[in-house]
Design a protein around this nucleic acid. Structure first.
Lengths: 114, 114
DNA sequence: TTGTTATTGCAACCGAGTTGCGCTATATTT
DNA sequence: AAATATAGCGCAACTCGGTTGCAATAACAA
């Protein structure tokens, strides 16, 4: 199943994954394997447009914890989602302790700009 | 319906709104009114934990467009969501044109830290 | 072989959000 | 005032991403 993710920084929505593997694996199995791969620090998940779940490969994570705090970019034209390897500085918020920060950027990707 | 939002920077999930108004309005009506209020620049919407939809009052928006690019903070303990009036600088992303940026912070709120 | 545990598939379910349609108010016309 | 159009609302049924329970099978150990 990991083959499907290739080597790029591209992400795959669970839906696309289910479509692609439907002949080989059951929907339930796919959800369960993805859960486990995330627990083990192999993949990280996040929510894209419309709250749909996406997965992408981790670079420096382990079962001990996830480090992937990079933003994700979703093209509003073609729908593609990529991990963006930059860091977004989150300002200190008074009276609150921030544990997780999710940044979803939406716009036009390279292919769709031409 | 707008009364439910009070004067604070607090947000309300559609679900909570439906529960609260169930005796007075139908679910479908609530979704439709919220849509319209967002179009008119009165409320802005965003996705919280688990991809659920939340609404909060706008401060400087109009039907011409939304300006609310502030982050939203959701407490992982009590579930409360607030608009945070700070600006999160989004770095330029090469080869991509960012139109919308959504920042969701999760952690512990003031009340739940004590 | 037998007993035990982990994977998988299937079907049914859940719940947030949407859609179609009919009813009833509120205008708008004549 | 009566007739017509238009907008708002409720209801029920639906869609669809995701979950759950359980049975069947595969893999493993005694």
């Amino acid at each position: 199943m990991l083959n499907e993710f290739g080597e790029s920084a591209g992400a795959i929505s669970v839906i696309a994954l289910i479509e692609r593997l439907d002949s080989r694996f059951n929907k339930t199995t796919i959800y369960r394997v993805l859960d486990k791969l995330e627990e083990d620090g192999v993949l990280h998940s996040f929510l894209g447009k419309n709250g749909l779940k996406w997965y992408a490969k981790c670079t420096d994570c382990s079962a001990a914890g996830h480090q992937d705090t990079h933003p994700h970019f979703q093209c509003l034209n073609c729908g593609k989602v990529d991990c963006i390897p930059v860091s977004v500085p989150i300002p200190k918020i008074p009276d609150r302790e921030v544990a997780v920060s999710q940044v979803l950027l939406q716009g036009t990707c390279e292919n769709c700009m031409a």
